[in-house]
């Protein structure tokens, strides 16, 4: 159990440091990279809490897809970092005040819970042969199947809406018509003219 705790603190510390780095890094690309590191460490923590499915999904979806998209956007927009960072010191007191408020609220909640006495009794490992993925799937595809299907419909709708609003046929755009190119015959393009040999004069 000690080894487990050490691992937890190591990964938690790396995650904390990386999260700070996201905010304080001067280069937005570095920020994105550090965010990837944060997500990865969060995934490891989930793995240690035996939530394997969530951990893998976090890496696959967030690190694999969302953060790559982020990186594209950051590189494409070429954000002026200096201008964005200028407000940091100005807004810092405000941010710290909100963070402190949240800490106080959390402490209060924990204190209240400890007074009542029904604190969650530590981490209980799952029994042998328990599959996190199976448990999640069995709820998702039975109890919540209706909501799950509607969510899929919403995604389809979002695709259609996005295409409706953005796809346009620009006039004067030079596009290859593959079917026409393939369907072309030699006789459409060149005319072979039979001629008698010219007499040498």
């Amino acid at each position: 159990m000690l080894f487990h705790s050490i691992l937890f603190y190591v990964f938690a510390a790396i995650m904390f440091g990386a999260a700070l780095g996201v905010v304080f890094s001067r280069n937005p690309v570095h920020s994105v990279m550090l965010l990837v590191l944060t997500f990865f460490n969060a995934a490891v923590l989930w793995l240690m809490a035996e939530a394997e499915f969530l951990a893998i999904v976090l890496v696959l979806v967030y690190v694999g897809a969302v953060m790559v998209l982020f990186l594209f956007v950051v590189m494409m927009l070429d954000v002026n970092v200096e201008a964005a960072k200028r407000g940091l010191t100005r807004y810092a007191p405000f941010g710290i005040a909100i963070a402190l408020l949240m800490v106080v609220e959390l402490m209060q909640l924990i204190w209240l819970r400890s007074q009542v006495g029904d604190t969650v009794g530590g981490f209980v490992p799952n029994p042998e042969g328990y599959s996190n993925t199976k448990a999640l799937g069995s709820v998702l595809y039975t109890e919540h199947v209706y909501a799950f299907e509607i969510a899929a419909v919403i995604l389809l709708l979002a695709i259609i809406a996005a295409i409706t609003l953005t796809m346009r046929k620009r006039p004067g755009l030079k596009v290859q018509n593959i079917a026409k190119q393939v369907g072309v015959r030699a006789k459409d393009r060149i005319r072979v003219v039979k001629m008698d040999a010219e007499k040498k004069s």
Partner: peptide, 23 residues
């Protein structure tokens, strides 16, 4: 409440796109 919310989002998303239809 979950179904209600998802239905509402389906409706709202199509309405947003319809309002912006003539882009």
């Amino acid at each position: 409440l979950l179904t209600m919310y998802l239905g509402l989002e389906t409706l709202s998303l199509s309405l947003y796109a319809l309002v912006a239809f003539d882009r």
